[in-house]
Every structure is written in structure tokens, then in C-alpha cells.
Amino acid sequence: MSKTTTASAPRWRALLALLAGLTLGFTSLPAHAADEVRLLKAFSSVSSRYGQVWQDVSYTLVVKNLAYEKFVYIQQKQPDGSWVLLPASYAGPANNGFELWKVTQQYQSWGTEPQPTRDLEFVARFVVGGTSYWDNNGGANYQLGRNDGPLLNGTHVLVDGNFWRANGDLDVSVDVKNLAYAKNVTVVYTTDGWATSHEAAASYVNGYTYAYAYIQSPNAQNVERWQAHVPAISGTALQFYVRYEVNGQTYWDSNFGYNYQPVRQTP
């Protein structure tokens, strides 16, 4: 599916949208969205090194493509109680007329204006055609501790990332909701366009690092980290999806039907 929108818009239009948000204020409003916008994942971690401390924050949203021109935000509460709009950028298609948008933010303890780390309270906002849609977690707003790691919403399994080893092996990191003690997490992959397929069982990880932060697994949001190892493969046409089996149910992450297609950098 071709990309139907871009994250960029003329600067003056983005400024007008931001001013409109400031005019409306930053108080939490009742949720208006049915499926127009929803939080998919939020992540926060606090790193410390050489006496410096910083917080990495990211948000991933699923947005309905109602028009080419749109504005997508995270509305986040500041430590002083005020609210700020964090503009999102287009991140890719999500099939069936939906798109992925993402916000990344870093709060640093160094510099002339240090920004302290903070626990997060936030909502998702989508502005299109003069109408604002909200996902505010049913009126409760979303909450995420400063070093919780991932929060999953509306999904039980989601690939966090993948890493190519020098020998051609691929490591795949997967986040799953801890729905029961007994579970199976499997990466299903192909190198020939699904003429044949193979499976790599993932293993539970009881803790992991992000930058210089340590994230417990399961975390305060009851999300576990699992990791699968795909042995060295020939060619570059690798595709994979993830199967999560728990409580007699099976859940999937197929990258919204596109499958994951990691690109290996060649020298």
C-alpha cells in the first residue's frame, strides 16, 4: 500500500494548529474517538552515566486516515501541572485505511535549562477537518512510570525491534502482556516469499537494558520481554511475524499485515 500522507506540513499550518491547541487549553476532555485515534504503545526509561541522567520517551499511535492534512499529538502533563502538545510524525501504514504516527522525546539533566525526569500522564489527540478526536483511556488518562519501559494498549504482543549480528544471525525482541505464567512466543519467518517457513522459539528475558537504563520484566505495566534468535540465513528477503499462545488463545503481530522485513546493511 502506498503512503497516503506525510508527517510534514507547511510550518505556518502546524503553528496554527499548535496555537489552536493552546487556545483550547490542556485539560483532559472526554474521549471523542471511536477508532479515529488510539495509543498503541508508550515507552519510558531513565538512563544514568558519568553523573548525567536522561529520560527517553516514545509514543506510537494508530490513526485513521480521514484526510491528507492532519495533525497528530500526544498531550502530556508537565511536572508543574501544565499540559504541552508533542507533535507526532508519520511512521508508516497500518492497513485498512489506518496509519502509524510516532512521538519521541528526551528529557536531559544537563545544559542550561535542565528538564527533570518525570512520571508520565498523557492522552492522544488527532485533529482533522476542524474536529479533534481523543484517546484519553476512557477518561482516566494514560499513566506510565518514568522507568517502567513499555506500555501496550489494544494489543497483547508487539515486536520491539530486531538486531543483525555480524555473522548474519537476527535477534528479535518482542513485548507481550503477561496474561498467564505458561505461554509460548514464536517468530515465524521465511526467506522465499512464504513458499516455505521456519520457526524460532523466543525465550523469556527477566530484565534488559535500554541505553543505560535497566528495565524489569515483567514491568509495572505487566509487560514481559521475550527474545528469539533466527540463525544465519542467506539472501536479504527475510520476512517474519510473531505468534503468541497463552490461555488457549493465539495472538499475532504481523506488522498490520505487512510482516516485518528487516533490512541487513551490506558493506
Rank of each mutant, 00 (worst) to 15 (best):
M1L: 03
T5Y: 00
T6L: 14
A9W: 05
L16E: 14
A17V: 06
L19Y: 08
G21W: 00
L22K: 13
T23S: 13
L24S: 11
L24W: 08
L24P: 01
S28K: 09
L29H: 03
A33N: 12
A33P: 06
A33H: 09
A34S: 15
E36R: 07
L39F: 11
L40D: 07
L40H: 05
S45Q: 11
G51H: 08
Q52P: 09
W54C: 05
W54R: 09
Y59C: 04
T60D: 13
T60P: 01
K64Q: 12
N65Y: 04
L66R: 12
K70H: 04
F71H: 08
F71R: 01
F71G: 00
Y73P: 11
I74C: 00
Q76P: 12
Q76M: 14
P79T: 09
S82W: 01
S82H: 09
L86G: 04
P87L: 06
P87K: 13
S89H: 02
N95M: 07
N96F: 02
G97W: 10
W101I: 10
T104G: 06
Q105H: 15
Y107C: 01
Q108D: 11
S109Y: 05
G111V: 05
E113H: 03
P114I: 11
Q115S: 13
R118S: 15
L120Q: 00
V123D: 08
V123F: 03
G129Y: 04
N136I: 01
N137T: 05
G138M: 08
G138V: 02
Y142M: 09
P150C: 06
L152N: 06
G154S: 10
H156E: 15
H156Y: 14
L158M: 13
L158I: 05
V159A: 06
W164N: 03
G168Q: 05
D169S: 15
D169F: 03
V172C: 01
V174K: 01
N178D: 15
L179W: 06
L179K: 08
L179H: 02
A180G: 15
Y181I: 11
N184R: 14
N184P: 10
V185C: 08
V185N: 03
V188Y: 00
Y189L: 07
T190F: 03
G193T: 08
W194F: 07
W194N: 03
A195Y: 02
T196M: 04
S197L: 15
H198C: 12
A200Q: 11
A202H: 00
N206P: 05
T209I: 04
T209P: 12
Y214R: 14
Q216T: 10
N222I: 00
Q227P: 05
A228I: 02
A228Y: 00
H229Q: 06
A232H: 12
S234E: 12
Y241A: 00
V242T: 07
G248I: 04
G248L: 07
G248N: 06
Q249I: 04
Q249C: 11
T250W: 13
T250I: 14
T250H: 10
G257W: 02
Y258N: 02
Y260K: 01
V263M: 10
Q265W: 02
